[in-house]
Simulated scan of single mutants.
Amino acid sequence: MGPEIVFIFLFAVIFGVFYLYFSTRNKERLALIEKGADASIFITARNRKAAPFWKVLILNLGLLAMGIGVGVLLGALLSYNFGYTGGYQNRPSNYIQTETFYLASIFLCAGASLLIGFNITKNLDKE
């Protein structure tokens, strides 16, 4: 009973978000047309020169992969240099500390690379 209900609620939430988005957009446009506003405001956003989607996607995926690679390297260096040499009774020595170094450095470097990708994409859209 558990997984089925989760998928039903997930589908309902996705359907609700799309329904609200499209119905609200339609109502806003109809209200603007009734007031006599110019319909060109709906077209100008499409004519704006923006970087193609595939270029932005490849740029961000490449930077994310590089960030993860740097994070793994940084985690290995940190665990080698600052690894905890003591151990717990049932676990290998330095298990928890090494895992923490790896995870923290991977997430930090991946997040930093995505921020760099966002800034580069923003600069591409300005040009």
Rank of each mutant, 00 (worst) to 15 (best):
M1T: 11
P3G: 12
P3S: 15
E4N: 13
E4P: 13
I5R: 15
V6G: 10
V6Q: 14
L10E: 12
A12T: 06
G16R: 07
Y19P: 06
Y19F: 14
S23K: 13
S23E: 07
T24D: 13
R25F: 11
N26F: 06
K27L: 14
E28P: 04
R29M: 13
R29I: 08
L30C: 11
L30A: 14
A31I: 03
A31P: 04
L32T: 10
E34A: 06
E34D: 06
A37G: 07
S40K: 09
I41M: 03
I43T: 03
T44R: 02
R48N: 07
A50V: 11
A51I: 08
W54E: 13
K55G: 13
V56P: 03
I58R: 06
L59E: 05
N60H: 07
L61I: 14
L64N: 13
L64P: 15
A65P: 02
M66S: 11
M66R: 01
G67I: 00
G67K: 01
G69V: 04
V70W: 01
V70D: 02
V70E: 01
L73G: 02
L74E: 10
G75S: 01
A76M: 10
L77H: 10
S79F: 02
Y80C: 11
Y80V: 12
N81Q: 09
F82E: 01
G83D: 04
G86A: 04
G87Q: 09
Y88E: 13
Q89G: 09
R91Q: 10
P92S: 08
Y95G: 05
I96Y: 15
Q97D: 14
E99P: 06
F101K: 00
F101M: 01
L103D: 04
A104P: 00
A104T: 10
C109L: 06
A110P: 00
L114R: 02
L115F: 03
I116Y: 00
F118P: 00
F118G: 08
I120G: 02
K122E: 02
K122F: 01
L124F: 11
K126E: 08
K126G: 07
E127L: 14
